[in-house]
Design a protein around this nucleic acid. Sequence first.
DNA 1: CGAAACGTTGAATGGTTTCAACAAGAGTGG
DNA 2: CCACTCTTGTTGAAACCATTCAACGTTTCG
Lengths: 243, 243
Amino acid sequence: MAIETSPLTRKLSAFVQLSAPELGVLERLHERRKSFSPGRDLVHQGQSEQAAYILAAGWVVSYKIQPDGSRQIVDFQIPGDFLGLRSVLLHTSDHGIEPIVEIEAAEVMVGDLLQAFAETPRLATAIMWAVSRDEAMVVEHLVGLGRRDADARMAHFLLELGVRLSLVGMGSREGYACPLTQYHLADALGLSAIHVNRVLRKLREGGLVTFRDGVVVFDDYEGLVDLANFDPAYLDHARPLLP
Amino acid sequence: MAIETSPLTRKLSAFVQLSAPELGVLERLHERRKSFSPGRDLVHQGQSEQAAYILAAGWVVSYKIQPDGSRQIVDFQIPGDFLGLRSVLLHTSDHGIEPIVEIEAAEVMVGDLLQAFAETPRLATAIMWAVSRDEAMVVEHLVGLGRRDADARMAHFLLELGVRLSLVGMGSREGYACPLTQYHLADALGLSAIHVNRVLRKLREGGLVTFRDGVVVFDDYEGLVDLANFDPAYLDHARPLLP
DNA sequence: CGAAACGTTGAATGGTTTCAACAAGAGTGG
DNA sequence: CCACTCTTGTTGAAACCATTCAACGTTTCG
């Protein structure tokens, strides 16, 4: 179906003008559709897999469990994101990957991916762009944990997620639907769930954002950007790699 | 000179048995030697460069400056590490790179590197292993900032550095020389310099580590590993990629 | 000698966690 | 169907970790 474009196609198209054959190769990668349920890991920590996935629908969390049992969430994946791509390319996986809701994902065999790369270098570059963007987000996450207080951290997180979702048509400057629990936020932001609750209340009562019943509403986008010191430069690279 | 092996060669050799021609290619990458002085950035934040470097001697810091002026250190590089490799391959650089002391680095042009990859796939794999190890360290750093208290964070950091340095013959279970200031530690660990000082004192008086006058001495390695919940698995991948 | 960089310490403040408790909705089995 | 549990969200009070402010000692270097 050329009519309903996949989220990944949407995302890449925002930065690189892809030709018809390139779009065809991209869509062909989506053929092996699979579903997964929340709770069961796609990839266990320490295990290395043969296949990567392109997330088509649903939310996924990448995390690392500490020896003492606490959990640190490294990143969330939303539709259009790759799952386990680095694990496959580099034969390593030091973190777990778990669906948050019922998800749909296209399984991509390493061979198919490499062949697609060989056929369409521009597509390869576009995907490498997406990978590098993911890494920039991890770095930004690290910066947030190290140098932002709880309020700014939360604000920055919600804003980043908003920009990411907008790119695949699942969000806007108004807000977005978000299935994450306050425990997810706590494990991602390095806070206790209790404090997450307080921070959310503070932001809500401050008229900045409202996160309730699975919906994020930006009440004062500019104010939030200001509080978070949010600079989306790392999300849409200064200059695209390709014309 | 085949006699004095470079730190990078040493590091890779610990995990992959490289053949004579492969070692040759590796040494040839080290030809364009350059020196840099502390204070001046090798790569400025936001700038993207043509060349990558292999660090031969000295210490380097990768950091990101916040809009409010505070600094978060993402990683340190020691001899045998690549500088700006990802920036070159992915045409992006969202962080600064600055020498801490007078350094020696071999400039590597993108073309030469890609050619070396083509000539010797095993070498390419070995280098990709090193890159993925760097990324695992960033993730581990993120986990530390999110889920470890100041003491464990410091202990973990000093231990990780010890393992990394041991691999290039610059450290052991006894300790190592370390030119970092308490300000560096503070910016890396997301603490204030004052608190870094207190933590170091506590660890020293607890008979665990002594960091003084540019030297780290492990007084009680096991105790430190215990405090930090240090599991070096992410540093020496479960199974090497190549026989 | 004076300045600058780095290290060290005390006291006060405050952000965050922990402990404890309660409310509301979803799902489950009797 | 209802009681039950589990998950998620919510709030208050006490305790604690880390920061900020302020000050001083040491060494290096021009």
